[in-house]
């Protein structure tokens, strides 16, 4: 469970949110510039809110009143970035090895993302869909306690999307962690999310 009660000035707009996210999958939708990515980055500790509270399972990650701000390294969040944020100097396998030393888990992830045959390839040698899958696998590699996904399926074709989502659901059930998915297109994950929130 994540409790978010924060305010943040973004340019001329004031972003404010008071919401408790449950343990299932929550879809976050809204128009461009509404602050969806900023919200995910504030939860991850990559952007500091101006004031408020962010608590995970009642443990404060951010509390402006008592000046608590847990660094992103200690939040154990699997973050899928909209631009993938893949490391150009690392191969597919090196991305996962950078995140975890669990070899069996790495092999399983490679199989899940159908990237076993591309393990030695670098991001610029992968297609857009493969890059996006790698970004998802890297986020899962740390066995996160919370998963934040920013437009995670936008570059995938329908067939790959359907297959990957079905396989991800198995992993999600196994990890049993809350998942927040930002998506412009709710149809992408229709039927798999438990809750929905629109940011205006």
């Amino acid at each position: 469970m994540i409790r978010v009660d924060i305010k943040k000035q973004i340019g001329r707009l004031e972003f404010s949110l008071n919401k408790t996210f449950g343990d299932g999958i929550t879809l976050i939708s809204g128009p461009s510039g509404a602050g969806k990515t900023t919200l995910l980055k504030m939860i991850a500790g990559l952007i500091k809110p101006d004031e408020g509270i962010i608590a995970f399972n009642n443990l404060p990650w951010f509390d402006s009143r008592v000046r608590i701000n847990v660094q992103p390294q200690y939040r154990k969040i699997g973050f899928v970035f909209q631009d993938y944020a893949l490391f150009p100097n690392m191969s597919v396998r090196q991305h996962l090895e950078y995140a975890t030393t669990d070899i069996a888990w790495i092999e399983r992830l490679l199989k899940l993302g159908r990237l076993e045959n591309f393990a030695t390839q670098r991001p610029h040698q992968l297609s857009g869909g493969q890059q996006q899958r790698l970004a998802i696998l890297r986020a899962l590699a740390i066995k996160p306690q919370l998963i934040l996904m920013d437009e995670p399926f936008s570059a995938l074709d329908q067939k790959t999307k359907t297959t990957l989502i079905a396989e991800l659901q198995i992993i999600f059930k196994e990890l049993k962690v809350p998942i927040l998915i930002v998506s412009h297109n709710p149809q992408d994950i229709a039927g798999i999310y438990d809750d929905e929130m629109a940011i205006e």
Binding site: A44, G45, Y74, D83, A139
Partner: peptide
């Protein structure tokens, strides 16, 4: 891209590890 360092931080890496393994090689 600022997201490179951010991705490294979310993987639990320190600023120094991020500098050495991600930023410098790129």
């Amino acid at each position: 891209p600022v997201s490179l360092a951010q991705a490294s931080y979310t993987l639990g890496k320190t600023r120094w590890q991020t500098f050495w393994h991600v930023l410098l090689p790129n």
